[in-house]
């Protein structure tokens, strides 16, 4: 149970031996995703060599702007995958929350402005969809794949119903439309928002009962339950947080686009799940982490941006992501093969 020892419970109990700082740094370095960082550096060097514009400040800012939405989504997705479940609903939740947000903010269809209440309502919608998925999964014992497939459709349906037959709702407030691109300390606001979500995810996973509980469930749900962890409530909370983060991503994506669409999240699932998997978050749970997944998102977005600058057709994006995913997972799992290993 070496993996269990790694997941210390931060309540200062006798078992959680505190490591002295140098030991701690060395341990952190051993678990650092050096391979990921190296791949990102190599790719950056190659792309800069292929097209010097890649390394320009404008393009780097553009990169941070593009990475923001999938970065927010991947934090929630990773938490759910680390628990051994899966969340397919991100695109649906993004569509529902994005539409709810824009219809309550200054827009070309309705003459309303609820200000911060638009945020509250849209985030609550995402939280609600996440809670629904969590409760059905944990209490009614329906596999998370099926439940979140359902909430994907439900979210999409809410988005379509809100979109209705009227004209395209576009954002009329210049301040809001410009906010994601505006720079603070040289970095686009969109990225600051994503960085805040990432920081929050990191805190939750490392320093709260919820985060440690998620990892314990991912490692071995039966043991976690036997030890007295409230497995059902932890699961429900994890799905609720994932829904909340998808909603935030939906709002940001709507702001970036400047108009509302139920399909605002289109393609996100195909970025965040490969990103998490490439970065070493095992779909069986208990492994990986939000920082690793964030690096995975960086790698994929960087690759896409670099290939576009190098003159490759954007249509190839899903093919390239797919090919990388196939190669990466085979490479990772090749040494772990065994006659009795079960890979589903």
């Amino acid at each position: 149970m070496s993996s269990f020892a790694r997941h210390r419970i931060p309540d200062g109990s006798a078992q959680s031996a505190r490591l002295v700082p140098p030991e701690r740094w060395r341990a952190a370095l051993r678990h650092a995703p050096l391979g990921m960082i190296l791949s990102i550096v190599v790719l950056a060097v190659v792309f800069t060599w292929a097209n010097p514009r890649f390394g320009s400040v404008e393009n780097l800012q553009n990169l941070l702007y593009q990475v923001a939405v999938p970065l927010i989504v991947v934090v929630g997705t990773t938490m759910v995958i680390q628990m051994g479940s899966i969340d397919l609903s991100v695109q649906g939740v993004m569509g529902a929350s994005g539409m709810a947000w824009i219809l309550m903010s200054p827009n070309s269809r309705l003459a309303v402005d609820f200000g911060p209440w638009a945020w509250v309502a849209a985030l609550a919608l995402g939280l609600g969809l996440g809670l629904l998925a969590g409760i059905v999964h944990a209490r009614l014992k329906v596999p998370s794949f099926v439940v979140t497939l359902g909430t994907w459709y439900i979210g999409l349906g809410i988005g379509v119903l809100l979109y209705g037959n009227g004209m395209l709702p576009s954002l009329t407030s210049e301040t809001l439309a410009r906010w994601p691109t505006r720079l603070t300390l040289g970095v686009p606001n969109a990225f600051w928002l994503a960085a805040a979500a990432l920081g929050l995810g990191l805190l939750v996973m490392n320093y709260t009962r919820l985060g440690r509980g998620i990892l314990a469930i991912g490692n071995n749900e039966t043991i976690a339950g036997a030890m007295g962890l409230p497995v059902a409530s932890i699961k429900i909370m994890a799905f609720a947080v994932a829904g909340l983060l998808s909603a935030l991503a939906g709002i940001l994506a709507t702001m970036q686009l400047g108009s509302g669409s139920p399909d605002i999240g289109s393609g996100q699932l195909f970025t965040v799940i490969p990103a998490a998997v490439i970065a070493g978050t095992a779909l069986s749970g208990g492994e990986g982490g939000v920082v690793r997944s964030a690096l995975g998102v960086f790698l994929l977005i960087l690759l896409n941006n670099g290939l576009v600058l190098a003159g490759v057709d954007p249509d190839f994006q899903s093919g390239i992501f797919g090919a990388i995913l196939v190669v990466a997972i085979i490479a990772v799992s090749w040494p772990l093969r065994g006659r009795l290993k079960v890979a589903k």
Partner: peptide
């Protein structure tokens, strides 16, 4: 043979086949 999870692998081949 590679014993990889089918969910991740077929997600990858999905992308490749779409582009194909």
């Amino acid at each position: 043979y590679a014993q990889v999870p089918s969910f991740a692998l077929t997600l990858g081949t999905l992308g490749v086949l779409q582009t194909a």
